[in-house]
Amino acid sequence: MSQGERDYSEKRDFIRMRIETTVVLLQEDQRIEALCLDLSSTGMQLEAPSSLKMGDKVRVLIPSEHSELKGLDAQTEVVRVQALDDGRQSLGLAILAMV
């Protein structure tokens, strides 16, 4: 399946929630604060001051504001990278597993 077909399929099959919240990316010994723009059951879109590449594995933490609810902790893979004008990256991450 081509990336274009996959993008179209994902738009039909999965609801994306716009959330715009701060998240933490963990990769090896790096800790990067990023902005999550949207989230679905299979992935998320972020903007981050990073230099990640396609295929990189990244752990994503979204803390919960409520003590009764566990935050999101997911192992992800970078599936889309776009450089932004301000030196940050727009990232598409596929969720591989919930930790």
Results as ranks from 00 to 15, higher is better:
E5V: 04
I62A: 11
A74I: 04
D7N: 09
K53F: 10
Y8G: 06
L93R: 05
E28K: 15
S40G: 05
L37E: 05
A83Y: 03
R80E: 00
I19R: 08
M44C: 11
I19Q: 08
D73G: 03
S64P: 00
M17S: 15
L37I: 07
G92S: 02
L61P: 03
S67Q: 13
S9N: 10
V23W: 02
V79K: 03
A83Q: 08
A74E: 01
M54T: 09
A97P: 04
D85R: 05
P63L: 05
K57S: 09
I95L: 11
S50C: 05
E20Y: 11
S40V: 04
R12G: 05
G55P: 09
P63N: 09
G4M: 13
S9D: 11
M17F: 15
A83W: 02
L52Q: 04
S50H: 02
L84V: 01
I15D: 15
L72R: 10
R80I: 01
P63G: 04
A83N: 06
V79L: 03
E68H: 10
L84R: 06
P49A: 07
R16A: 03
T22Y: 12
E33P: 05
S2L: 12
G55T: 05
T21P: 05
V81T: 01
A74V: 07
D29Q: 10
L61V: 09
V79M: 04
E5M: 07
G71F: 01
K53R: 14
D13I: 06
R80A: 01
Q3I: 14
K57R: 14
G43I: 00
A34P: 03
I62M: 13
L72M: 13
E68D: 14
L96Q: 08
V23G: 01
R12P: 07
Q89P: 06
R88T: 00
L37M: 09
Q3Y: 11
T42R: 15
D13N: 15
V58M: 00
R6D: 11
M1F: 11
M17T: 15
R6M: 13
V23K: 03
G71T: 00
H66N: 15
Q30V: 04
E68C: 08
V24R: 13
R6Y: 10
Q45L: 08
G4C: 09
E10T: 06
D86H: 02
P49T: 01
E77S: 12
D13T: 11
G92C: 02
H66F: 14
A83L: 07
H66K: 15
A34G: 01
D38P: 04
M44N: 06
F14R: 14
Q82W: 04
E47I: 02
G92D: 00
S9F: 14
G43P: 04
L69K: 14
P49F: 02
D56K: 06
Q82H: 11
V81G: 01
E33H: 10
E20F: 11
K70S: 07
G43K: 01
K11H: 13
P63S: 07
